[in-house]
Simulated scan of single mutants.
Amino acid sequence: MLVRDLESSLLARFPRGDAEAWDHVGLSVGDPDAEVRGVMCSLDATLDSLRAACSLGCNVLLTHHPVYISAPDSFCPSSAERPSSSAVVYEAARLGVSVISLHTNLDRSHEARASLPGLLGMEARSSLEHPSDPDATGLGSLCTCDPITLGDLAVRLRYSFETVPTVWGDSGMTVSRPAFLGGSLGDFGELAVRAGADVVVTGEVGYHRAQDLSLRGMGVVALGHDRSEQPFCSILADACASIGVPAEHVYVNPLPTQWWVPTQGDFA
């Protein structure tokens, strides 16, 4: 399989038309006519993920987040004076690694819709973007579940996503209509309100949005942007295997520890 065949098959499954107009999806750097030797699936395109791909003999780095949305002014070795994407593209070209990204087109897929609630044994009944049309592709997930307190839900989320969530709302409040949206919540909190959700689980949310939703009676759980979307890497890996890349040549890059939470006794 050639890189161009891999890209076209992935875009047939996750169409460009489902991506936001501002997004940058598909092949960013690489030789479309190169034979695919292996695929590393990673949330982000970084120098570390490039090196991890090369160490396993992969010449394709398939990511959820694009290496850039707007191209940097130059592509040069790593430097504090330039954005990190500059060095990633430079190094990918130098190493002969093709970088392909599936971002908001993957976010709108039925696979992404099912992924996050599925980790808790919940089933999405529609997207958050199109709550009245279960068959339509769209961002986020709307679910129903057995009644559970917000505190207990937060504990389940902590262990399912291996993170320390930030929670807004009364821990004792009962919820049964959760909404999920990986990444940034943005204005989708209002869609969750209109759809009748009583808690929204997301990656990150601005202070004033979280405060406003909480004061209006909705629980808000922020998992961390990366933690909320790492499960999408498994979707990428499954897609590669299903279109003909040998499963033994498809890898998922573990999520690195990029941020941390201090606890009592950690420091003198």
Rank of each mutant, 00 (worst) to 15 (best):
V250K: 12
G224V: 07
M218E: 10
E204M: 07
N253P: 00
H225I: 00
R216S: 15
D238V: 03
A210Q: 08
Y207V: 05
L236C: 03
L236M: 06
S214I: 00
R216Q: 15
A210Y: 10
L223G: 10
G244S: 11
F232A: 01
A241G: 12
P246R: 10
F232K: 05
A237I: 08
R209D: 15
V205M: 15
P231W: 03
A222I: 05
M218W: 11
F232W: 14
H225R: 13
A222F: 12
I243S: 02
C240L: 04
A239L: 10
P231I: 07
L236S: 12
G244W: 05
E248W: 05
D238S: 14
L236D: 09
L236K: 10
R216Y: 01
A237P: 09
L213M: 15
A222S: 15
P254M: 09
N253D: 15
H208P: 05
H208Q: 15
A222Q: 09
D238P: 00
A247P: 02
S234F: 02
F232S: 02
S228N: 04
G217Q: 13
D226Q: 10
P254A: 06
I243D: 02
S228W: 03
Y251N: 01
A241P: 03
D226N: 11
P246D: 09
H249I: 01
D212G: 00
I243L: 13
Y251P: 01
A222P: 13
V221A: 06
G206R: 15
P231Y: 02
C240N: 03
G224S: 07
L255R: 11
Q230H: 14
G217M: 14
A239V: 12
A239G: 07
A237S: 14
A237Q: 10
A241Y: 01
Q230L: 03
S234L: 05
F232C: 01
G203E: 14
Y251I: 06
M218I: 14
G217T: 13
S214F: 03
L215S: 14
I243E: 04
A222H: 08
